[in-house]
């Protein structure tokens, strides 16, 4: 049983957009994600935190379909997507920006985004119209590029971008898909200090729209504090804490399991991971 010192935020009555029920994946004998049950409502930003190897990215992969779950369900707007492939989940509204940058390296920056706009418009099947004739798609791609401050690089191949710009392009591609659920996997990792605010502003603006569900894996606690409505803590594949940022960060379990501070409560924790942490 995952430990839950904090109840889920009680003052939300809205229907959850995304739910995972007992989501589990095993690789051989290793359980990377272990029975994670959580639900996410529209207009909220949930930060998913946890030490390296806690299963955060794997949890994302299970939701967006890159990895098939061994057990458990993924439900989007009441629709069970557990059997659906990656492409079907993307079309259903699950947007994903990858941690390890995942672009079309030899295509132009604009084309990278335009392909996502085209996917959202459902226009990939047309063989006899000209891609360059769909000016609305190109205009929309350019608008999104301007939002992430990449308009000047639109004509360059994606491979020529700096690391930080590649991360921004990754985010731009997800924006172009206009998903219901935005999954950011460490969007600011490896970015220079002056680039970080661009991405954070973007996430903040998305959040202000109140109709999108945002999931954010992030290591920087100051970012998490300033953006998150809620924090979910994963540790060794299990959900160990879930609640308001202030309370979660202050909770002994997080202090001990995530921040590595040996708390006095450690002895009282029955979970094996805590015991190992305490031994350090």
């Amino acid at each position: 049983m995952p430990l839950r010192p904090l109840p889920p935020n009680p003052d939300r009555f809205s229907m959850p957009v995304l739910e995972t029920h007992d989501l589990t994946v095993r690789f051989g004998g290793h359980v990377a994600v272990d029975g994670v049950t959580a639900s996410f409502e529209a207009g909220t930003l949930t930060a998913i935190v946890g030490p390296n190897g806690a299963g955060k990215t794997t949890y994302f992969n299970l939701i967006s379909g890159q990895i098939r779950a061994s057990a458990g369900r993924v439900v989007l707007n009441g629709r069970d997507l557990s059997g659906a492939g990656t492409a079907a989940r993307a079309r259903a509204g699950l947007g994903r920006a990858f941690q390890l940058t995942n672009l079309f390296p030899n295509l132009s920056v604009r084309e990278n985004v335009r392909l996502a706009v085209q996917a959202h418009a459902g226009g990939g099947g047309s063989m006899l119209s000209l891609a360059s004739g769909h000016r609305d798609w190109i205009a929309k791609a350019d608008r999104i590029l301007a939002e992430v401050h990449l308009e000047a690089a639109a004509g360059q191949p994606a491979a020529a971008l700096s690391h930080g710009d590649k991360r921004k392009l990754e985010v731009a591609i997800m924006m172009a898909l206009e998903p219901m659920v935005y999954m950011f996997d460490e969007p600011t990792a490896g970015m220079s200090v002056d680039e970080v605010p661009v991405v954070l502003d973007l996430i903040r603006r998305l959040k202000e729209r109140r109709d999108k569900t945002i999931l954010l894996v992030e290591h920087k606690m100051d970012v998490v504090r300033s953006l998150a409505d809620r924090i979910v803590v994963l540790h060794q594949g299990r959900l160990v804490a879930d609640g308001e940022p202030g309370a979660v960060i202050a909770s002994p379990i997080v202090q001990e399991a995530y921040l590595g501070v040996a708390a006095p409560a450690a002895a009282a924790t029955p979970a094996a991971p805590a015991g190992r942490e305490g031994a350090r």
């Binding site: 492409a87 079907a88 995942n102 672009l103 392909l115 898909l177």
Partner: peptide, 13 residues
């Protein structure tokens, strides 16, 4: 260029 990413955009490759 990247079939994994194409699939993730929602295209059934």
């Amino acid at each position: 260029e990247n079939d994994f990413r194409t699939e993730a955009l929602g295209y059934r490759t």
